[in-house]
């Protein structure tokens, strides 16, 4: 019997739902729930992690992330302006830096800041301890990415904006600062937020600098607790803790984009 078009479409849809339900049912039935709960969801371990995971670990994760982001943003903006400079050596230096640091693993740069520099200059110390080192170590890499994003944002501002500002008697610098860059940042908010989310996760690399009970962040805290209790629950808790940061972040961005859409 030949099916009509609508019947065929309905059948196809039902089959897709059916496949979905079947996979879920197999997983639910086949999984060893007792063992999974024992390994990943021990309520007593979860309780033991609070409130330290929030008051110390999450706080430090946020601090390291913001430190690296701030360093990367300032340095990245400078690099972006150098890339667009009329002075050729500035362009060369910025281009070389960006190409170099985009090609290096963040972990290696962090080693360089955390261990390389102290070996080279033993009499000096990076200010801010772990916070300072992670801000600079991750910020150096982030700056290279952010510089390219910001440069693209600046170039995306129509040429007429600079012309109008200059026509009103503004200097190139004033026009850049009050007219072009504010608009460029509106354009680059989504990609910069992406960078913030990446940094949130990269802040877990802080463990290589040797953190203490005061400077511990979420991933290291989860792993230490795992070692103590010989149980995987802390990893689940640590993972969910990151979502506390990253999920609201995308909400905030969505709202900002809406607000700026009105102003554009």
């Amino acid at each position: 019997m030949k099916l009509r078009r609508r019947q065929r479409e309905r059948l196809s849809l039902w089959l897709q739902y059916l496949a979905f339900v079947a996979v879920i049912a197999v997983v639910l039935l086949a999984a060893d729930w007792g063992r999974l709960r024992e390994a990943f969801f021990r309520v007593d371990i979860i309780e033991s992690m609070f409130p330290t995971i929030i008051t110390v670990a999450l706080r430090n994760t946020i601090l390291y992330t913001l430190g690296a982001f701030a360093f990367g943003l300032v340095f990245g903006t400078i690099l972006a302006l150098m890339r667009l400079s009329r002075v050729a050596p500035y362009r060369w230096v910025a281009t070389a830096y960006i190409e170099l640091f985009r090609g290096l693993p963040a972990l290696l740069v962090l080693f360089l800041v955390g261990y390389g520099i102290p070996i080279a200059f033993p009499e000096r110390e990076i200010p801010g301890g772990v916070f300072g080192s992670i801000s600079i170590g991750l910020g150096l890499t982030a700056a290279a990415y952010m510089a390219e994003t910001i440069r693209a944002g600046i170039q995306a501002v129509p040429k007429g904006q600079m012309e109008a500002a200059r026509t009103l008697g503004m200097s190139h610098f004033t026009a850049m600062r009050t007219i072009v860059i504010p608009q460029a940042f509106r354009i680059v908010i989504p990609p910069l937020t992406n960078e913030l989310i990446l940094l949130t996760k990269d802040s877990s690399l802080a463990y290589v600098l040797g953190v203490t009970a005061q400077t511990i962040e979420v991933t290291k805290f989860g792993r230490d607790t795992l070692n103590d209790r010989v149980n995987a629950t802390p990893l689940l808790v640590a993972g969910l803790t990151y979502l506390i940061i990253t999920l609201p972040l995308s909400q905030v961005v969505r709202r900002l984009e809406l607000r700026y859409a009105k102003a554009r």
């Binding site: 129509p158 007429g160 904006q161 012309e163 026509t167 009103l168 008697g169 200097s171």
Partner: peptide, 20 residues
Amino acid sequence: IDSVRRGIGMVFQSFNLFPH
């Protein structure tokens, strides 16, 4: 140039108001 341009207004085809 900046001080001379203060005395010269310019109106563009594409307006070029500052959208922000």
